[in-house]
């Protein structure tokens, strides 16, 4: 029996994919977004995607700033519209791997409309939604994914709005690939993003990230490592959950690949229709020429 254990992280140095003059990044201590960024770059490294072949589009917010640190083609665009910009980019340049990095507020509130239509269209691009349950950059307002009873600067009595299950939303809207993972399991997150990048249609990946400085502090969720340990209980069997440590997320959020379908991809269908239109136009022009000649 021959088996070789290969340390896949050994030849991946995240610094090869960062704009070193921008580092260190602006994120708060313990922010999970940095880990999500590493997972994205690791997945890209393992798939052998060259930096020139990657286009990252991001919106506004803490998550939106991540594109500035990636040494690739990056676009930092208007609030909530990274999917709209990415749709145009992916249609014009089908050879590129287009990745959208967006936050929960950016994706579900300001850009909620763009999300459902991007899911419906099923255009080949990867949407990485970093869900930290809060608008961190603007002062900690309630977001569509804030768990119930949680304190934010706009819900001083505790949030009483039910939160969105973003993955269920994306799957219902028709996304070809839907997955979710926590930042604590970096290799698993990397594998999920890899699967999303390899998927031929619209891939929606939700990353459960921690906002330690604003959300964690306001809700007394403990230090950065404590918040990270709470994530661990999210994936434990519910029987152990109460006895070990308590997750702060209100919903029972499953992780892993949650939906995968082989719906037709929009870009290919559009290009086929365009080619057919060009062909028929050319045929008409040809027959018109033939008539003139006769």
């Amino acid at each position: 029996m021959s088996s070789t254990f290969v340390d896949s992280a050994a030849d991946f140095d995240v610094r090869d994919y960062l704009r070193m003059d921008m580092m260190p990044h602006f994120l708060c201590p313990g922010c999970g977004h940095g880990i999500a960024l590493r997972a994205l770059l690791w997945a890209m490294h393992e798939l052998g995607i060259a930096k020139d072949q990657l286009a990252v589009v991001s919106g506004i917010g803490c998550a939106g700033r991540l594109s500035a640190y990636i040494d690739a083609n990056t676009f930092h665009v208007t609030h909530g519209r990274p999917l709209a910009y990415a749709t145009g980019l992916a249609l014009a340049r089908p050879d590129l791997h287009v990745v959208v990095i967006t936050g929960d507020g950016d994706c579900l509130a300001i850009g909620g409309n763009h999300l459902i239509h991007a899911c419906r269209r099923n255009l080949k691009l990867t949407c990485l939604m970093l869900n930290n349950e809060i608008y961190g950059m603007t002062g900690g307002q309630v977001s569509p994914t804030t768990s119930e009873t949680m304190l934010t600067s706009t819900t001083p009595l505790g949030n009483s709005e039910p939160s969105f299950d973003a993955c269920a939303l994306a799957a219902a809207a028709g996304a070809g690939f839907v997955g979710r993972e926590v930042t604590r399991h970096v290799p698993r997150l990397k594998e999920l993003i890899k699967a999303g990048l390899a998927h031929p249609g619209f891939a929606f990946v939700e990353v459960l990230s921690d906002c330690t400085e604003i959300f964690g502090r306001k809700n007394d969720l403990g230090s950065s490592p404590e918040m990270m340990l709470r994530q661990k209980s999210d994936i434990r069997p519910s029987a152990y959950r109460d006895s070990v440590d308590t997750p702060f997320r209100a919903n029972e959020l499953p992780t892993g690949i949650l939906a995968q379908t082989n719906r037709p991809e929009y870009g290919a269908a559009y290009r086929r229709a365009a080619a057919a239109q060009r062909a028929s136009a050319a045929a008409q022009a040809g027959s018109a020429n033939a008539k003139e000649d006769s």
């Binding site: 995240v14 610094r15 260190p24 994120l27 313990g30 922010c31 880990i35 590493r38």
Partner: peptide
């Protein structure tokens, strides 16, 4: 893997 600031290699 878990360092959010890429400070450890």
């Amino acid at each position: 893997l878990l360092c959010p600031d890429f400070a450890i290699r």
